[in-house]
Amino acid sequence: MKAREIVLSGVFAALTAVGAQISVPLGPVPFTFQVLMVFLSGLVLGAKLGTLSQVIYLLLGALGLPVFARFSGGIIHIYGPTGGYLLAFPIAAFISGYFSEKTKSSWGKLGGCLLGLGIIYILGWVRLGIWLDMDFKKAFYLGVAPFIVFDIIKALIALVISERIKNVVR
């Protein structure tokens, strides 16, 4: 792995941390810009480096650095109500990056982002449902439904700006 690739992965891990701090509390799951950064990491860096950037982000947070929402950190967040969302970030970055590498079509790339978003929602919803004593209906209404429209908009924004960022990164 080249030094440039490691640096770019670190930059996108840092951007995800910044996105986490743009936070509006909505119950156990806050509204943040992490998902936008997850999509950007995959779309700009590709599957391998996008995934690495999100793994770095999770490791930094698990080690206690305040990179998660509301300047928090620690392994407890991985096991807490939002842990499923966090653990899905590398998978979503991989999927959006994979689609970005395999297709030139904006629709294909958007499909990759939306598939990644589905993974984030599924893992997050299941973890939140377990945390809520197996109340998966409540978990859906707290942790998925309020975010769908905004996260689709984030995917569209990521798609639009990723090409410009790619040109700068190259």
Rank of each mutant, 00 (worst) to 15 (best):
M1Y: 13
M1L: 13
A3P: 09
R4I: 12
I6K: 08
V7F: 15
V7N: 05
V7R: 01
S9Y: 01
S9L: 06
G10D: 04
G10C: 08
V11T: 13
F12L: 00
A13D: 03
A13Q: 05
A13F: 09
L15F: 15
V18G: 09
A20G: 15
I22Y: 10
L26T: 06
L26N: 13
V29Q: 06
V29C: 10
V29G: 10
P30V: 00
F31C: 03
F31W: 08
T32Q: 10
V35C: 07
M37A: 13
M37I: 00
V38A: 07
F39Q: 04
G42K: 00
V44H: 10
G46H: 04
L49C: 09
G50T: 04
G50M: 05
G50P: 11
G50S: 09
T51P: 09
S53M: 03
Q54T: 04
V55E: 11
V55R: 03
V55W: 01
L58G: 06
A62Q: 05
A62L: 09
L63V: 11
G64D: 06
L65R: 03
L65Y: 12
A69L: 05
F71A: 14
S72Y: 02
S72F: 04
S72N: 14
G73C: 08
G73Y: 02
G74S: 06
H77P: 00
I78V: 15
Y79W: 13
P81H: 01
G83S: 09
G84L: 08
A88L: 08
I91L: 15
I91H: 08
A92K: 07
A92L: 06
A93Q: 07
A93F: 08
F94Q: 00
F94Y: 15
I95Y: 07
I95A: 08
S96N: 07
Y98M: 11
F99G: 05
S100C: 06
T103H: 12
W107Q: 11
K109W: 11
L110R: 06
C113S: 08
C113P: 02
L114M: 12
G116P: 12
I120G: 03
Y121F: 14
G124D: 03
W131K: 07
L132V: 02
L132M: 13
D133W: 01
D133H: 10
M134V: 09
D135N: 14
K137S: 15
F140P: 01
Y141K: 01
L142D: 10
V144M: 05
P146H: 00
F147A: 04
I148G: 02
V149M: 11
F150T: 10
K154R: 10
K154L: 07
A158L: 04
I161N: 10
S162D: 07
I165F: 14
V169Y: 13
V169F: 14
V169G: 09
R170K: 14
R170N: 15
